[in-house]
Computed example of a mutant assay.
Amino acid sequence: MIARFLANEGLRLRAYQPPTPEQRQIDQLLRRRSKIVTLKTALQLTCSDAPCLRTETARLLKSFAALLKQIDQQLATLQQAMPERAQQLERLQSIPGVGPLTACWLANLLDRVPFANSDALVAFTGMDPQPCDSQTYEHCRERGWTMTEAIVIFARKMLRIALAMHKTQKCFDAQFVGKTA
């Protein structure tokens, strides 16, 4: 079975490329930040209807905000240490809806994993349940898709655009979205 796999897929296999120390640290900080945001949201939801906990909740939320600010500063410092990263972040943030954190995550991923095409990137991120890249959000909702389905469709579209921009080293240009060469 392994021999058959290697015979069929061997030429397309690539050697594993471990993350650089900076990439590993950025990944860890992004995961920690995500968990802290989840905990902060859970605290807000849990204590929102408890007036007796208002003071302590506010103090904890302020601490969460300070911790998130510290993580954001560490991410910025790490990225400033990578000379080519500034232009890449600027290009990625030119995509409507992509902010500093998403750009940071995408840049880290695209630098580390050499995706052959946008389908590989979409599959890697787990966002390939159904194709519909050329639709508008309203069109997707009119077709009866749930909010989650519509969001996944647009996340896939954003990933495809990000990979194209990464490969061409060009900024986002809305006039080319949906057009093929």
Score class of each variant (00 low, 15 high):
residue 168 T to Q: 14
residue 60 L to G: 00
residue 61 L to V: 12
residue 176 F to C: 03
residue 77 T to I: 13
residue 86 A to M: 06
residue 66 A to Y: 11
residue 12 R to T: 08
residue 65 A to Q: 13
residue 122 V to A: 05
residue 133 D to C: 07
residue 53 L to Y: 08
residue 168 T to G: 03
residue 2 I to T: 08
residue 51 P to R: 06
residue 3 A to E: 10
residue 121 L to I: 07
residue 60 L to R: 15
residue 93 Q to M: 14
residue 41 T to Y: 04
residue 46 T to H: 13
residue 59 R to W: 11
residue 100 P to M: 10
residue 167 K to Y: 04
residue 13 L to R: 03
residue 101 L to E: 02
residue 50 A to W: 07
residue 27 D to W: 12
residue 4 R to T: 03
residue 59 R to G: 01
residue 61 L to G: 01
residue 68 L to S: 03
residue 65 A to G: 08
residue 58 A to S: 14
residue 146 T to I: 04
residue 142 E to K: 13
residue 34 S to G: 13
residue 11 L to I: 07
residue 127 M to P: 00
residue 36 I to Y: 13
residue 104 C to H: 02
residue 177 V to T: 05
residue 91 R to Y: 01
residue 147 M to F: 04
residue 80 Q to P: 01
residue 69 K to T: 12
residue 139 H to W: 06
residue 53 L to R: 04
residue 43 L to I: 07
residue 151 I to Y: 02
residue 136 T to G: 09
residue 44 Q to C: 11
residue 148 T to L: 12
residue 117 N to W: 07
residue 161 I to K: 01
residue 40 K to H: 11
residue 159 L to I: 05
residue 41 T to P: 00
residue 89 L to W: 02
residue 25 Q to K: 14
residue 77 T to R: 15
residue 12 R to I: 04
residue 14 R to N: 05
residue 154 F to Y: 10
residue 8 N to L: 14
residue 51 P to L: 04
residue 13 L to Y: 04
residue 15 A to T: 13
residue 128 D to W: 03
residue 146 T to K: 10
residue 95 I to C: 02
